[in-house]
């Protein structure tokens, strides 16, 4: 595991904590797109189905293929799943009245349908698990679109929301560096599905990163988009 990968994962983990902290501290989920959060739960659910495989190996005491990396991945996968479901749960229960649903107008089928079709066509293996994994990679790349649309609609974001978006966008950018590093150092490593999707994902954050850094440089992370 290289430094870029571990940093990326920790940044991703931080993004959940920032969002949960923001929602708990302000008792509000204003400015956060429920649709984007819902897509992330779907992304992790489809991607981490191999948890059952690991669980199966553990309950049958088949530890031969369980490495340190397996344990690390399993731990993080469970955390990511728990955090994203918890966020969706909070947004639909105690914080529902503060949810920006009226402005969260993105049509989810506009990303769900193309991602499903692409996953059926462009995958490494035509098996259910592999197609769902590929679908999750494609969907994650564009899952931020409702959030970006809400940000444009609102025209501004408070500083915790900005930090959250920086963390969730920055993590995939670090994965890009990790992939370059692995491609250069590991003879059999190549994962073009993730590379292309990861590039699209990072590119979608391009404008946001620009405004974020301008704000950070001026000593304030609250964003106000130019009108």
């Amino acid at each position: 595991m290289n430094i870029f990968r571990i940093s990326a994962d920790l940044l991703h983990l931080a993004s959940f904590f920032i969002l949960i902290f923001k929602m708990k501290a302000t008792k509000s989920c204003k400015g956060i797109s429920f649709k984007t959060q819902l897509m992330y739960t779907l992304v992790f659910t489809c991607r981490y189905l191999d948890l059952f495989h690991v669980l199966g190996m553990m309950i049958t005491f088949n530890f031969a293929h369980i490495t340190g990396l397996t344990l690390y991945n399993t731990f993080m996968k469970i955390l990511f799943l728990a955090a994203s479901y918890y966020i969706v749960y909070l947004m639909r229960t105690e914080l529902k009245s503060t949810s920006d649903d009226a402005r969260d107008t993105f049509v989810l089928w506009h990303i769900l349908a193309p991602c499903a079709v692409l996953a059926l066509i462009f995958n490494a293996q035509f098996t259910i698990l592999e197609i769902l994994w590929t679908f999750s990679i494609y969907l994650e790349a564009v899952a931020v679109m409702p959030q970006l649309m809400l940000l444009i609609e609102t025209g501004e974001a408070d500083s915790l929301s900005s930090h959250y978006m920086f963390a969730v966008g920055g993590y995939r950018a670090l994965y890009l560096v990790n992939w370059v590093y692995r491609y250069a150092t590991e003879p059999y490593y190549s994962n073009w599905i993730a590379w292309i999707a990861g590039f699209v994902q990072t590119a979608l954050f391009g404008d946001f990163f620009y405004y974020y850094f301008v704000k950070i440089m001026s000593g304030d992370a609250a964003l106000k988009l130019p009108t």
Binding site: L69, Y175, A194
Partner: peptide, 10 residues
């Protein structure tokens, strides 16, 4: 194998 390498990330 190759597929293990592809799926060792999060």
């Amino acid at each position: 194998g190759d597929s293990d390498v592809r799926h060792d990330e999060l």
